[in-house]
Structure formats: C-alpha cells, structure tokens
Amino acid sequence: MSSPRTLFAIGMTGLTFLAAAIALLILVAILSYVVINGGSRVSLDLFTQLPPVAVIKTGGGFGNALIGTLMTVMIAVLLSVPFGILAAIYLSEFGRETLFSSIVDFLTNVLSGVPSIVVGVFAYGVIVTKTGFSLKLGFSAIAGGVALAVLMLPIVVRTAAEALESVPNDVRQAAIGLGATQFQTVFRIVLPAAIPSITTGVMLAVARAAGETAPLILTTLFGYSWINSLIAPPTPTLSVLVFNFATGPSRNQQQLAWAASLILVALVLITSLLSRLAIRRKV
C-alpha cells in the first residue's frame, strides 16, 4: 500500500529512535549494574575500615581511599580554581575580543583535549621523578592533585568565563560610574554575581576529577593503610581502588570496587542534577 517514499521515511525514523534507545539502554545498563552490585555492599564499614588484601574473603572498606580522593581533589581545587578564575577574569573583563584572549580561549580547548594519561606523565615529570626539572617529591597526594588540577583547569576557565560574561554590562557601568576601580568592580560586583554559576561549574569539574584514574596510577600509587603524608606514599584513592580491585580475582575486593564505583557515579549524578536545577532556577 505505502509508497517506497513513506516506507523509507518510516525506516529512517525508526533508526533514529533506535539510536536514541541505544543511548538510553547503555546508561540504564551501566547504572543498574553499579547500583545493584555497589548498593548491596553499602554499610558504615565502607567509610571506616581499611581495604582487605586479596586473601581476606569478607569485610573491609575504603576509608583511606575516600580520604585520598578528598585530599587529591582538594589540592586540585586549591590549585585550579584561583588559577582558572583569574584567567577567566582576564578573558571576560579585560581581554574581550582581543587576539590574545581568543588564542587563550583556543589553547584552553586544546588543553582540555590532552589525554589524562599524558597529564599524568607530566605530573610525574614535574613532581614525582627524582631527576631533571622536578620537585622530586616521589609518588604522593601532591603529585596526584597537580595532575587533577591540570585536568580541571580548562573546565574552570570555561565555566567561570561564561559565568562572568553573563553578568550584565549595566552593572559594571554602574560600579565604574560610582568611581570603582577595575579591581573593585570585579571583586565587589561582577565576581559575587557570578559566584553561583562558577560554583556549579567547579562542582562538575570536581565530580569529573574524583573519577579520574589514569593520571593517578602514575602519580599516587595505591595502599592498604591510612594516609600519613601529603608528600609520600601511600595515597590510595577510590578510582585507583576500582581499577586495582576490578581487575583482581578476589570476590570481596570486586564488591568493594562496585561500592566505590557507586560513590563515584552518585557524585557525577548528583552534581549533574544540581547544576540542572541551578540553571533552571536562573532562567
């Protein structure tokens, strides 16, 4: 009955729906595995106990890895947020529509495309290694934090610049008209107005950084004991724990890896939801 033309249209529309269904299905498949396998292991022990070695069949937690993740991410935030916001202030307040700022903008995007493992190699070269132009600190939380900071930096620069640019120009003019200096205009008016959006951007960057693994296996290593130094091993983290325990044979360790995956996924899920709500409220 139908002409070839309509059959073709139905077929193509069907393929489009199939593509959308595939994307949805993959997400559901991943989330359900993480939630079911990780959820069964959630208890207070996770946060207070140390990871079990492979021969121990039950129990244990990843209190030390949780602290390690918090520490490395905190270091990364302390390094990348001031750096990124200052660069963003230049892009949005002083360098708008200059060649210099469009080059910086370009390089920011290129930096965000550098593979995380290469960033790990870089952090190894400037912090860990005992030769050359290095701080020679060895495997440490600092080294991991530096690597994560490099990965966070382009996200912070981009979101902060967007947030600052969305502050209306009227308000800047009002401040300058009252005799505010550039410094006062930025720090008393523009930046405070942009802080909510910048916070959202930093939260997204933090969630990404917490899940990063590749640069950490080159810079922090792993460990089964509590962390006692910022500049010495061991610095276990949740993401490296997932890698180590997922690839090992111990059933107990694999369960812990699922639980750690659940925490990392919950972190990105919650921050994504929060940022959506924040955007919706603003509009």
């Binding site: 209306p168 308000v171 300058i176 008209g177 009252l178 005799g179 505010a180 008393r188 405070p192």
Partner: peptide, 29 residues
C-alpha cells in the same frame, strides 16, 4: 573624577545586592 561626577543610567541597574549594600557601595569604596 567619577566619584565627583556621578551617573544614573537609562535602564535602572541596581547591583544584585541588598538595598542597603547598593547605597553603601560607593561610600565603602
């Protein structure tokens, strides 16, 4: 100079701050 010669703009442009802080902004500078 701008502290001696003030300006009111076409579109009302209060700072996204409290009424009090809007007024106090200039003197605080």
């Amino acid at each position: 100079l701008r502290r001696r010669i003030g300006m009111v703009f076409q579109k009302p442009n209060p700072f996204p701050k409290s009424i009090y802080d809007n007024i106090a902004f200039g003197p605080r500078l």
